Every structure is written in structure tokens, then in C-alpha cells.
Simulated assay, not measured.
Amino acid sequence: MRIAIDALGGDNAPREVVAGTLAAARGNPGTTFKLVGPRSRLDKHLTPNELPANVELMESGGVVSMSEEPAAALRSKPDASVAVSAALVKRGEADAFFSAGSTGATVAAALLGIGRLRGCRRPAIATVLPFTRPVLLLDAGATIACRPQDLVNFAILGGVFAERYFNLKDGARVGLINVGEEPGKGTDLTREAHALLGSTPNLNFLGNVEGRDIGNGTADVLVTDGFTGNVVLKTAEGTARASLGMVREAITSGGVFARLAGAVLRPRLSSVRDQVDPENYGGSFLLGVNGSVVIGHGNSTARGVENVLTGIAGAGSSLTENLQAALAKSTGRPS
């Protein structure tokens, strides 16, 4: 694997991105890591003789900020670090690129610089929700307004990705997020998508999944539009933090027995905290573009960057080909 890293992407860039990349490089000597950014800014976070042999520095211009309109900013800044990272994938000099910067800029750079898979009109952000049995959610925010066929494409892409990511021997079970289990429930989008999903070959479609059932292991893949998916993702993350905070408050504000109970439970609570910590389960894959693109959390630390890059390195370089083949098989179009 060869991974391009947008060194300027994220709230803590480039310091944490550089540190995380160096750590990932030491742990994955067979992978090449291409740090993309202005050399003058990267050198500040590199000590002499520190650069591993499998890390390359790639010169670029500045960053696309959160406040800028992504497509317009990329057209005016073709040498921005996220654009250069995408161009490396387009030219075949990298197999994947990672950015913890503006999600909109990363999606726009992928679409403008790499292009879409054949048969896929819009991309989707696929995010793992770390329940007891993890579930893949898409779209988590790339395509706000979807057509029914877009949700079918998301289901196909998500099914292939989940089989690989979760090591599912019997295939992925796909559900459509809706306000009821019955096929006739929901909006025009969900009703039409339900009918299309049910008739799509090579897809294990279970039907509608209500919000209360998202975390109970009903499905391996949950499909929805980007607006709903982003709300679901942010709600799940916020609920996890709030729940852990309530447990912590109950333990620390109680009497001696509460504190004793807390001491007994602390190891288990720590493992639950680690399970839902975004720094541990990595970034989100942008599916539907002609290359592997991974989006990290904006506040990623070096640990989070290292975990994401290690995950990309372990995923291998054939994911894009597998996704294109699955789309072709379901649509009847040549891959």
C-alpha cells in the first residue's frame, strides 16, 4: 500500500498528523506513507534523521479551511494539500489518501481529482458505529439529497465493504433506516428505495430498520441519505459521551459504597470508553469514488491518525476493484 496523507488537514495539523504518520510508518514497514504539505511547515515537526525510510515528503500549497466553499476553494487552490493528495491517487502514485480536514473539501477533492466509480452517481461516507456488534452506517454526510437508486448503490458498496471489514463469511445483512418496519412507511425516497432494494440481485436486504434497533445487531449495514445519516452518527456519538458522563457522575458523587463499586467497575468502564472512542476505531471511508479515500475526525490526535493509517495499510489495495465489480454485477454494466 501507498498512502497519501493530507498533513494540513485537521484541528491539530500538522503536528499530530506528522507524529501519527511516523508512528504508523514504524509499525508498517511494508507500506509507503506520503506526507503532503509545505516542506517549511512539515520540517518544524521533524527532527534530523527521524524520517523512516518508508515516509516521503510531498510538497504542496496551503489548506482549504472549514469556512470556505469546498469546490470553489479547490478550483482557486489546485495545489492545496488535500488536492495534491487526491491527485497522487489519480495518477496511480498512491493507493489511498487520508485527510482529517474539511469533510466537504475531502469529498470535493475526491470527486474532482479522482472521479466516481462507473454506475455510481453520488458517493457515500461509510462509518462504523461501535456497538457490541459493530454496524456500518452510510451515508454519514457526503450526499444530503439522494435518489432511490443512490441508496441502492450505497447498499451494494456498504455490503462489500462490511464483508471485508467485519470478516463476514456469510455476507452482509443490509437494512434501510426508516420510521417503521412496514414497506409502505416513510417518505417517497424510502418507499421507492425499499422496492428497489428488495429486487436488487446479490443483496441480502432485510427491510426497514427503526432508529431504536440501530444498535441491536439487526443488520450489518444501515443505509440512509446523508442528512439522516449524519444526524444518526452525531446523536450516537453524543449519547455515548453523555451516558459515560452520567455513570462517572453517579460513581464520583455518591458515598463510600458508590466509590467502592466504581473501583470494581473501572476496568470494564474503561474498556467501554475505549470501544466508543473515535480515536480507536479510525476514520470513515468515502465509498463510490475511484480510489480509497478515508476521512478522519477533525480533532484527531497522533494516536487517532496512527490507528487510521494502520487500518488503511491492513485493508490492502484491491478494495476499489471489488467495489466496482459489485456495482457492475448488480447493475449489469461492465466493470
Results as ranks from 00 to 15, higher is better:
Arg273Cys: 01
Leu112Gly: 06
Thr143Pro: 03
Val84Tyr: 12
Ile312Ala: 06
Glu237Lys: 03
Val209Ala: 09
Ala24Ile: 12
Arg191Glu: 00
Gly291Met: 04
Phe166Thr: 10
Glu306His: 09
Phe166Val: 07
Ala109Lys: 14
Phe285Glu: 00
Asn307Ala: 11
Ile114Trp: 07
Thr224Met: 14
Arg116Phe: 06
Ala83His: 04
Asp150Ile: 04
Val174Glu: 06
Ala80Glu: 07
Gly92Asp: 12
Val247Ile: 15
Leu269Pro: 06
Arg91Gln: 15
Lys34Asn: 02
Gly254Gln: 11
Ala72Gly: 11
Arg2Pro: 05
Leu327Asn: 11
Leu157Ser: 09
Val174Thr: 10
Val64Pro: 14
Ala108Gly: 11
Pro334Thr: 10
Gly158Pro: 03
Ser284Thr: 01
Arg164Tyr: 06
Gly101Pro: 07
Gly62Asn: 00
Ser284Met: 05
Ala219Tyr: 04
Tyr165Pro: 05
Gly311Trp: 00
Met246Asp: 03
Thr200Gly: 05
Val305Cys: 01
Pro134Thr: 11
Pro123Trp: 15
Gly104Cys: 03
Asp220Lys: 04
Asn167Thr: 14
Thr252Gln: 13
Ser243Lys: 02
Leu189Phe: 06
Glu59Ser: 07
Thr127Ser: 14
Ser67His: 12
Ser40Lys: 13
Leu265Phe: 13
Ala315Leu: 15
Glu249Ile: 12
Arg41Gln: 15
Phe161Ile: 08
Asn230Thr: 10
Val305Tyr: 00
Asp95Val: 04
Arg26Asp: 13
Thr132Phe: 10
Val209Asn: 07
Ala142Gln: 07
Ser284Asp: 01
Val272Gln: 13
Gly283Ser: 00
Pro183Trp: 07
Val160Thr: 15
Gly207Arg: 07
Arg266Thr: 05
Arg75Lys: 15
Asn230Val: 12
Asn280Cys: 01
Ala19Lys: 07
Lys44Asn: 13
Glu306Cys: 11
Ala236Arg: 10
Ala219Asn: 03
Thr252Ala: 11
Ala25His: 10
Ala240Pro: 01
Glu181Lys: 13
Val18Ile: 15
Ala313Arg: 04
Met66Glu: 12
Ala155Phe: 04
Val264Met: 14
Ala172Tyr: 06
Asp170Glu: 15
Arg164Pro: 02
Val272Cys: 06
Val293Arg: 04
Val36Pro: 03
Lys44Trp: 07
Val179Pro: 10
Gly245Gln: 09
Asp213Thr: 02
Gly158Asp: 05
Leu286Val: 02
Phe166Glu: 10
Ile177Ala: 09
Ala110Leu: 09
Glu210Asp: 04
Ser318Cys: 05
Phe131Gly: 08
Ala94Ile: 08
Leu233Cys: 02
Glu279Phe: 00
Leu111Arg: 14
Val135Asn: 02
Ala19Ile: 01
Ala110Met: 10
Glu50Leu: 11
Gly92Asn: 12
Ile251Leu: 13
Gly332Glu: 09
Phe33Val: 01
Thr224Phe: 10
Ala263Met: 13
Ile156Thr: 13
Gly288Phe: 07
Leu151His: 08
Ala23Cys: 09
Glu68Asp: 08
Gly184Asp: 08
Asp95Ser: 14
Ser65Ile: 03
Ala86Thr: 08
Leu260Asn: 04
Pro48His: 13
Ser284Ala: 15
Arg121Tyr: 09
Val82Met: 06
Ile214Gln: 09
Ser292Val: 15
Thr200Arg: 02
Ser102Gln: 03
Val160Ser: 09
Ala140Met: 08
Met58Pro: 00
Pro52Leu: 00
Glu249Lys: 13
Ser60Met: 04
Thr301Pro: 11
Lys329Pro: 07
Pro29Leu: 00
Pro134Val: 14
Leu57Cys: 04
Gly158Ser: 04
